[in-house]
């Protein structure tokens, strides 16, 4: 197999003095779509934020495109969608202005050329917001905000997309648009790591799921299939080979 796009080995991280990641291994190969799942507080957001250097790793190794993350500078290859409910700031801004921020990584000293403006326009077309380009972001719905944030990440033409709960608080129409956008990116060869609360409409796209629980990797393999009784909300996952008397594993995936 080719060199991994993202590689985490034995990564530990703390928030305050509370350990949030307790030594996780995580690898994403080129062209893969990997979902990071787990209940609230399982460390999935922290894991993603440690990949991009927002949360410092207390121990372990993190590599991006084969380069140790500390020395990684080629950020135009990475598109990041942070967990946000809004794309707006304290001053009005148009959709184009916000998405243009994502193109800065490809410009020299922030000077925009024709190709840069076209890339911004292209990113807006991908998420179906080209007709809203000149509107203020304040005027958009929650799902449209999320589409703006994704267009911003796509504007630099990244090879790797990292998304933190892109489906949170998104209406059905926008969910479909996001799934279609992602499908397009994957068909063009993009690698994707995304934090999800539930698989939802993205399920058919996902090659592999990594489930975290209390800062440890609980499952790394094909996405868990929710079938029959398992599909019912709030069920407990009981492993028959678990030691007798062990607590049932509550992944919280379906709650």
């Amino acid at each position: 197999m080719t060199e991994p796009v993202i590689a985490l080995r034995g990564v530990r991280a703390e928030l305050g003095s509370r350990p949030v990641l307790r030594g996780i291994d995580l690898t994403v190969h080129r062209g893969e779509v990997v979902a990071l799942l787990g209940a609230n507080g399982s460390g999935k957001s922290t894991a993603v934020r440690s990949v991009i250097g927002q949360v410092p790793a207390a121990a372990g190794e993190i590599e991006l495109f084969g380069t140790p993350q500390r020395r990684f500078r080629d950020w135009a290859r990475v598109g990041y969608v942070p967990q946000r409910t809004t794309a707006a700031g304290g001053v009005p801004a148009t959709v184009t202005e916000v998405v243009s921020s994502g193109r800065l990584a490809r410009t020299r000293f922030g000077v925009f050329r024709k190709a840069d403006r076209e890339a911004v326009r292209g990113a807006l077309e991908l998420v179906g917001l080209a007709d809203r380009a000149k509107d203020a972001v304040d005027a958009l719905s929650g799902g449209q905000h999320q589409r703006v944030l994704i267009a911003r990440a796509l504007a630099a033409g990244p090879e790797l997309l990292i998304m933190d709960e892109p489906m949170a608080g998104v209406d059905l129409v926008s969910q479909e648009v996001l799934a279609e956008t992602l499908r397009h990116q994957v068909s063009e060869g993009a690698t994707v790591l995304l934090v999800l609360h539930e698989l939802g409409p993205l399920e058919p796209l996902i090659d592999r799921a990594i489930v975290l629980r209390d800062g440890c990797v609980l499952h790394d393999g094909p996405p868990p299939k929710a079938l029959g009784q398992h599909a019912l909300p709030g069920h407990d996952h009981v492993h028959p080979h678990a030691p007798a008397g062990a607590e049932p594993i509550r992944t919280g995936l379906l709650s």
Binding site: V78, A93, L104, A105
Partner: peptide, 14 residues
């Protein structure tokens, strides 16, 4: 603009 709008995102654009 980028830094004032979203500091976390700005950091990831390098």
């Amino acid at each position: 603009f980028a830094v004032s709008q979203d500091e976390e995102f700005a950091r990831v654009t390098g």
